[in-house]
Structure formats: C-alpha cells, structure tokens
Design a protein around this nucleic acid. Sequence first.
DNA 1: GTCTTGTTTCGACATCTATCGATACAGCGA
DNA 2: TCGCTGTATCGATAGATGTCGAAACAAGAC
Lengths: 123, 123
Amino acid sequence: MSNLELEVLGQDDAAACCSPMVREPLGEDAAVDLAKMFKALSDPVRLRLLSLIASYEGGEACVCDLTGPFDVSQPTISHHLKVLREAGLVDSERRGTWVYYWVLPAALAKLSALLQTPTGESG
Amino acid sequence: MSNLELEVLGQDDAAACCSPMVREPLGEDAAVDLAKMFKALSDPVRLRLLSLIASYEGGEACVCDLTGPFDVSQPTISHHLKVLREAGLVDSERRGTWVYYWVLPAALAKLSALLQTPTGESG
DNA sequence: GTCTTGTTTCGACATCTATCGATACAGCGA
DNA sequence: TCGCTGTATCGATAGATGTCGAAACAAGAC
C-alpha cells in the first residue's frame, strides 16, 4: 500500500513538467529531450505514419496496414516506426505474426502544451 | 474597398488550415511543410533560442542578447536564427547596428493545434 | 523440421546538418 | 573615408540521417 502511494506521488511530480516554452527559457536538458521528439517528427513520412496510425479505428494499426500507402520500402517503414518508438511517440506490441503500433497521446499533449502561446494571441 | 474585402476573406481561408493530425491522415504536401517546421525545432540550441527570444520583455530579443547564453559561436547562432526564420517560426528586423528577432505566435499555434489530442485523453 | 508470411536489423551509400574560423556585409560616429 | 561594432555568409569538416536490398528474426501452419 505504501509503495503504491509513493508511485502515485512520483507520477504527480512527473506531470508538472511542461509549460509553454514562450513563458520562460528552456533549460539545456529539457531542450535535448524535446529536440529528440521534434526530430522524430521532422520527416514527412514519419509525420504521415503517426497521423495514419492515430486515425485508424481503435487508434492502432498493424505494420501490414502501413507499408502500402507510402512510396518507400517496408524496411524503411520499420526504421521510421523505430524512430517514433524510441522518441516515445508511439508504442507497439506483437500479436502473433502481426505487430501493432499506437500513438502515445501524452507525448503529443506534452509537445502541444509546450508550443502553446498566450491565450488570444494567434497572430 | 472591394480589394480590401477580398483580402480579408483570403485571410479567413488561411486561418482554417489545421486540425489535429490524429483526427485524419495528413496529406503528403502538408507533411512536407510541417516537417520543415519540426526540423527547425529539432535542435536543442534552436529550441532554447526560440524560447529565450519569446521570454524576453516585449517578446523580442537582439542578436547581441543571444550570443552570450550558448556554448556556440556567433556565426552558429546566426545560422540557427536563419533556420528558424526560414521555417517561418520567427521574424527579424534590423534597427541600425542591431538586429531584433521575435517569435511568430501563429506558427507555434499551428503546430500546437496539430498536435492536439482528443479532449480528456492525456494518457 | 520445413515452408511461408510478417517484421526488424544490418551494412552501404548519398545526402543532410551543426559547427567552426575567416570573411563579407551593414550601420554608426568621428 | 576610416575605424569600430554587430551580424550574416562562406567553405570545410565530422557526424547524423533517409533509403535501399539482403539477411536475420518471429510466428504460424502443416
């Protein structure tokens, strides 16, 4: 019971990690972590993969569904999926022959919150 | 008068550009454009530069304020600022000897909206 | 165990990128 | 115009990255 309580407190601490980057200067360590995630999003194929995965009914897609819509080879798709996974933007699970991928909403929400601008200032 | 009205309508059209990428699959052209912006954000120094610029009183900073806080040379700072500017994330203006940079909130807002996840789903 | 399908990893390669010091350019005051 | 400060560009370099086909690995059916 006491171990469970400690874990919950730990999660609370971790949740207080991101405010808009325009509010106060980013630290070096935070910038390194965030740059990794943005780098994962900096390729058109990977952006489209992420979007396609998330758009699927049920919010997940099998790799076999992902190799057709792109003009790159299957190993390249695998490579891109690995980059997304290692950046913490998606997770995956093997179910028999097939491997399924899904987007991690918390990671996107973190980046979205980071890029928030002060309310009402849209240009 | 009629020309002004057309321009206003044009701006209204441009504002209706971004919905969350998790909602429906991104197209190829949109992905290429967006990847460029994410690529600009994929370097730790550039992230910190963007954040520092936006955090300044008045929302803008002179290059002379930006060369000190980083462990890279002045030409490297210039190069990074150029990348940010060409990605449409910042704009700049020379005022005599000094060059000032400021963040373009609409660009950040566009990316933030793109990364929005369905309300209430944070993990 | 063999064969098949699906997926990941490997190695090579062309291209891209962050960084540097040197240099060119921009602006100002005397 | 000259000398100075501030900034952008240039050319070179080492390291990173997207892509491919081949090979290795994972799982299922017979």
